[in-house]
């Protein structure tokens, strides 16, 4: 699949996909998006790179370990958010919202603890999907 056209398009599309997925992640609480969707989109972008350039160019074999850490770390992050809720709020996964006034742009920003949980979800989905692809791709 290493055709020049495909590689060129991938080079154009994948950064957009990455940035868009991060955008989807952070707006998830207010508009369609969130950890699952963003995670899937990021992994779609990475899979695209994988398909276009194959396994050698990005040294996936050595980087696959990173994705194992990513999904285990994501799981841990979500769990720790829950634990934090337990210690701060009184029960497991208790969430909280904080409104912070940002000094430079002079706006009220809203921070929800659930967003951190969602970040964990994002890491898990992303890590699992990419690990899956690299595992299968290396299968001979």
């Amino acid at each position: 699949m290493t055709s020049l056209i495909f590689q060129t398009i991938t080079r154009l599309v994948s950064p957009i996909l990455m940035i868009f997925s991060l955008y989807l992640l952070f707006r998830g609480h207010q508009l369609p998006g969130g950890g699952f969707i963003a995670g899937l989109m990021t992994s779609a972008g990475l899979v695209l790179i994988y398909l276009a350039y194959g396994c050698e160019r990005f040294d996936w074999r050595n980087r696959s370990r990173f994705f194992y850490y990513l999904f285990s770390g994501g799981l841990a992050l979500s769990f720790l958010t829950g634990l934090a809720g337990l210690f701060v709020g009184g029960f497991f996964l208790k969430s909280g919202v904080a409104h912070v006034h940002m000094p430079l742009i002079n706006e009220e920003w809203e921070f929800a603890s659930a967003a951190i949980f969602d970040l964990g979800v994002y890491f898990v989905v992303c890590g699992v999907c990419v690990s899956l692809m690299t595992l299968l791709g290396e299968e001979r």
Partner: peptide, 22 residues
Amino acid sequence: KLAGGRNVVNVVIVDFRGFDTM
């Protein structure tokens, strides 16, 4: 009010029913 999110589906997933999601 409680979770500070307007996308109800996402709020249900990560907040109200966070245990399921975990």
